[in-house]
Simulated assay, not measured.
Amino acid sequence: MIVTVVAGNPKPQSRTLEAAHHVAESLTGQAATSEVDVVTLGPSLLGWGDDTVKAAVETVAGSDLVIVASPTYKATYTGVLKCFLDQFAGATGLAGVTVVPLMLGAGPAHALAPEVHLKPVLVELGATCPTQGLYLNEKAYAEPDAYAGWLGQWKDIVLASASAT
């Protein structure tokens, strides 16, 4: 299974990226096959046709399972993540890819952000999001128990979807 983590944090090597890797490994039992730390693509995200950005898009689109992660900014995902997602072709850019929306935030007030804001744009791009998005408190994301309930409820469904697509 090809598993990719995508982190849309304005800070490279962020807690968001770390959390995405943890989810990928917890779901599959192995490290992600590849990683896209979106901010490292730099100003190339603002235009079209950059080879590095194209390669990142192709990596994600060619994956079986993708964890798309963002910190919560103004109750939604980051602009840098949106710039990356805009590089995908219409309603088919993520067709055949199972995607888990993951967001980190400061408190429970934004717990629906992955479901209400991130998941719809992923589905618009053709992704299969078979479960609820995962929201983690940014102060507790490193604690194994932070993931336990979500994994217990959704792991089998995510893996079945990724194997089927």
Rank of each mutant, 00 (worst) to 15 (best):
T59W: 02
D86T: 15
T52L: 08
L118S: 06
A69F: 01
T92C: 05
T76G: 10
P12W: 12
P130A: 11
L94V: 09
I157Q: 10
S34V: 00
V100S: 02
E18P: 03
G93H: 09
S70W: 14
P144T: 09
C83W: 02
Y147M: 06
V97L: 13
L65F: 14
K119P: 05
Y147F: 04
E143K: 12
G8D: 01
D145P: 00
W150R: 10
F84Q: 06
L46Q: 15
T76M: 09
K54L: 12
P10R: 00
T52V: 05
Q87A: 04
T131P: 13
A160I: 04
Y147W: 05
G126M: 04
C129L: 12
V23E: 06
Q13P: 01
E115C: 01
G79E: 09
C83T: 15
L104T: 07
N9V: 08
H110K: 04
S161L: 04
A7F: 00
P108M: 08
E58M: 13
E18G: 09
P130E: 10
L46K: 14
A89K: 14
L125T: 11
K82A: 13
Q153W: 00
L122S: 04
K74N: 11
V123L: 08
A56V: 10
A24H: 09
W48V: 14
A140D: 15
A75Q: 04
T165L: 08
G29S: 05
P12F: 15
T16M: 09
L104K: 04
A75N: 01
P114T: 03
A106Q: 10
G105V: 02
P114H: 03
L118Y: 06
T40N: 01
K139Y: 04
A95G: 13
Y141I: 08
T76Q: 12
L45A: 06
M103A: 03
I2K: 14
L45C: 05
E58T: 11
S70K: 03
P114E: 10
T165R: 14
A91R: 05
N137R: 13
T78M: 03
G49S: 11
P71S: 13
P108C: 03
G29I: 08
L81G: 02
L41N: 07
P120D: 08
G96N: 03
